[in-house]
Amino acid sequence: MLFGFPITGETVAYFVLALIIITSGVFLMTLRNVMHMALALGGVFLGVAGIFIILGADFVGIVQVMIYAGAITILMVFSLMLTHSRRKTDEEPEAGGLRGTVTFIGVAVVVGAILLVVRKTSWPVSPTALQPFHQSTVLLIADALFHTYTIQFELVSALLTTALVGAVIIARKEEQ
């Protein structure tokens, strides 16, 4: 038994992935070098992708790897390189002292309350929790996207186009 759960491959994979995610997250908050922080970010995103695959959402897991671990991490690294400040006057990367401590305590209280609620609530138990989907989730997601959520899907594509054009216009160098 591992924290009250029987030792199966799924449980071991869950704990390894949770360890990777939380360790990378803590590294992300404590490291000083911004480039190392971006690498830790990749660790967080890959761990979350593994959690999705444990949960039977293989398509969402692959999308997570492609978009988050691939595109967004690289974009963050690029912008870190582009905006690397040469002046080293302010070596303090975060709010220190009393404000940092108060923020930490506040966040700890919020997370503790959420964990307590998660523990106290009796969640409904699914009888088919081991293998809930009897066919490929890609087919199910395609069916849901193009039959049930067609309008939302089109709205998201319109939003992506708008965001792309807006990003190009905002980041463009203005010629006087």
Binding site: F52, A57, F59, V60, V63, Q64, I67, Y68, A71, I72, L75, M76, S79, T137, I141, A144, L145, T148, Y149, Q152, V156, L159, L160, A163, L164, G166, A167, V168, I170, A171
Partner: peptide, 20 residues
């Protein structure tokens, strides 16, 4: 899962505009 996919798309748009 479909909501999660929408969420990922919105997050990608947000990152693009934020970095711009």
């Amino acid at each position: 899962q479909v909501y999660a996919l929408f969420n990922i798309a919105i997050a990608a748009a947000e990152v693009a505009v934020g970095l711009a």
